[in-house]
């Protein structure tokens, strides 16, 4: 493709300029709100209510972070969020991988039936209320396990794993069987090591979902403060900011009573704390989600 010797025309140059402008504004629009939140989180609370803070704090303080890191409900939320992300992700990937392994075995007796059984779940589901009642009857509501158990198998993730496993050569399985290996050994010793990239993809998808979910905490554990999550606590902070928006005076009044802390500044600091782990990790995992999406999206 290195055939740039073809003389660049004026039109092509204009295109390049316009395209660069488009990309620059795209990047600005994407990054600005995030960086603005970071700036506000380092700014004095009452001062921030006046507005006019862009990419850099005007009155630099660490007070917001000190306050956030001392808030008990946020600490509990962080602990639960980490726990559900680790436990939920590991169990979900393990179960989905096992299921994908089973349905991708060519000789498995109920291969097509089992696939269909799960594909149907992608299109038909009971809906919010029957599911809510089920979890209540199973005594899952009001426990930590409501974050882990219900979403453990996902048909979509399973299909991505299955597609990948079907792409592995059959001869691997056959030669292992000749050596006397059973299906479990083949899964653990032969298939799983080869599936590391696609496992990484699913780990990423599930972990991000777990880290970011808030609705289950609100719906099933609203009264259980010991099982609150980071995102749900963030949501409560968000609504407290929204109720006060427009009345900057009220906010700063309340703020001065509480030593220069406003809902806006607290929320910004909490937002930064919540998104930091993801922002630090995702650039290194790019190739995994790109492969995963390409497998899952183009043909399911």
């Amino acid at each position: 493709m290195k055939k740039n010797k073809v003389k660049t025309t004026v039109g092509s140059k204009i295109f390049t300029v316009l395209n660069s402008l488009f990309m620059i504004s795209f990047v600005l629009i994407t990054l600005y709100p995030v960086l603005n939140t970071v700036a506000i989180s380092f700014n004095d609370g009452i001062d921030a209510v006046r507005g006019g803070i862009y990419l850099w704090p005007r009155k630099f303080v660490l007070k917001n972070y000190q306050t956030v890191l001392a808030m008990e409900n946020l600490i509990i939320g962080a602990r639960i969020t980490i726990a559900r992300t680790v436990i939920g992700t590991l169990s979900s990937v393990a179960v989905n991988a096992l299921l994908a392994y089973v349905v991708s075995r060519k000789r498995f007796l109920f291969k097509s039936q089992l696939s269909l059984f799960w594909v149907i779940t992608m299109y038909v589901n009971g809906g919010l209320i029957p599911v809510f009642l089920l979890y209540r009857n199973l005594h899952l509501t009001g426990t930590f396990w409501v974050y882990v158990v219900p979403g453990m198998v996902s048909a979509w993730n399973m299909l991505v794993l299955r597609t990948y496993m079907l792409g592995l050569p059959d001869s691997l399985e056959e030669s292992a069987q000749l050596d006397g290996a059973g299906y479990m050994t083949i899964f653990l010793r032969i298939i799983s090591p080869l599936c590391k990239p696609v496992y990484a993809t699913i780990v990423l998808f599930v972990a991000v979902g777990q880290w970011n979910s808030w609705f289950d905490a609100m719906l099933y554990n609203r009264m259980k403060t010991e099982y609150t999550t980071l995102q749900y606590e963030l949501m409560k902070l968000l609504s407290s900011v929204m109720q006060q928006s427009g009345s900057a005076a009220a906010a700063s009044e309340r703020g001065s009573a509480a030593a220069a802390i406003t809902p806006l500044s607290i929320r910004s600091a909490a937002t930064v704390v919540t998104m930091l782990p993801i922002i630090c990790l995702y650039p290194f995992l790019q190739r995994y989600f790109v492969t995963g999406l390409t497998i899952g999206g183009v043909k399911e």
Binding site: N36, T37, N212, Q231, L234, L264, R267
Partner: peptide, 17 residues
């Protein structure tokens, strides 16, 4: 890719700002 990894809570929060 960045915004995809942020929760709707965060996105609606910064959008609100």
């Amino acid at each position: 890719y960045l915004p995809h990894f942020l929760s709707w809570i965060i996105v609606t929060g910064i959008l609100h700002d």
